[in-house]
Amino acid sequence: MKNATLLLLLTFCQTIFATNTATLKANAPYVNSVQLLRLDYTAPNGAIRELALGFTSDNVASDGLDYGYDASVIEPYTNDLNWLIEDNRYVIQGVGAFDDTKQYLFGLYNEFSGDATIELSSTQNFDTIINVFIYDALLNTYTQINDSPYTVTIDAQDYTDRFYIAFSQPETTDSNDTVDSLDISGDNDNTIDPSIITPKGQLKVRYIKGLNQLKISSQNKAVIQQITVYNYNGSTIESKQNINNKKTSIYVNTTDKNLILHIKTDTETIIKQVVIGSI
């Protein structure tokens, strides 16, 4: 979308903001009280989209659909990033007062594999600097974009429940720790119970480059029964059943460097992120 088009949408949206509250704030330009955040998205094919998120200090808008505060996508594109509100696509979203505990969902639509980038373009009318993050719900990671853009390698598919904008993050963990929020249990019908996730250090994982193998061994008395290897998009790379041993290996001939292991033992379920080349 061209700059002029976004500017027109922003002006339109801000004008409606001002009109809707003119009777209450006749002596104060309402547009100046709207806190705005602008983002630039670049798709793997080079397509560019500009998005805006507006916070209304008196909560005249909500997290849901608000007529006059949300600007829908007029012409949906196959390579695009939009706000998702009630499963519909928007280029401008108006919400209530700024709350750093809230997150807002993106819909990322993509027909090409490659790198996608989300960049913080500007903020307006905030009294203090706010932290802005991209939350990846698949990897359970937060990446701050205040000073540098967020770049992710994606497949040619649509992502409607993975990426969010966020303004705070929980305590971070080592990237090789187990992941307790990712459901990669075969058919994805059952969510992993965090109470059965094994703490870091219960498994030893080594990668044998010449053989394209992961060697996995239990560091306690647990017997490994099943292993499934996924990439970060949730696609299955390899699976091995009926192992029944404390040590095993699994073939992983893939160009993906970041993998997720789903390991079932006789006592527990283990989910672990690994990076090929660092193990």
Rank of each mutant, 00 (worst) to 15 (best):
T141P: 02
K200D: 12
L182Y: 04
N27Y: 04
L139S: 11
D187M: 09
K204P: 09
Q144P: 00
T5K: 15
D58A: 08
S278Y: 13
F106W: 10
K240M: 08
K272E: 05
C13F: 01
L261D: 00
Y109H: 11
Y232W: 11
K257T: 09
F98D: 05
L203Y: 08
N88K: 15
E171K: 12
W83V: 03
D80G: 06
T248S: 01
Y104N: 08
A156Q: 05
Y159C: 01
V223A: 10
A47P: 04
T254M: 01
F163W: 00
T236R: 13
I279T: 12
Y77A: 14
G186Y: 01
I165F: 04
D177T: 11
D40H: 13
I197H: 12
Y230C: 02
V91D: 05
L108C: 08
G107K: 00
G94N: 04
V73R: 11
Q213K: 15
V91S: 12
G107F: 07
D127A: 15
D180G: 09
L108D: 07
T267R: 15
N245F: 06
T160K: 11
L53K: 01
D147L: 13
V274E: 04
D80K: 07
P194S: 04
T19W: 12
Y251Q: 13
T267N: 14
Q219V: 04
Y109A: 01
S57P: 03
Y104C: 09
L6Q: 10
A97R: 01
S217Y: 07
I250K: 02
I271D: 00
R162E: 07
F55C: 02
G277L: 03
S113P: 01
Y150M: 05
K221R: 13
T19E: 14
L81K: 03
D180I: 00
Q124V: 08
T191L: 15
S218Y: 06
Y230S: 10
Y69F: 15
C13P: 00
T128C: 11
Q219G: 03
L120W: 05
Y150F: 15
I196C: 12
S249N: 10
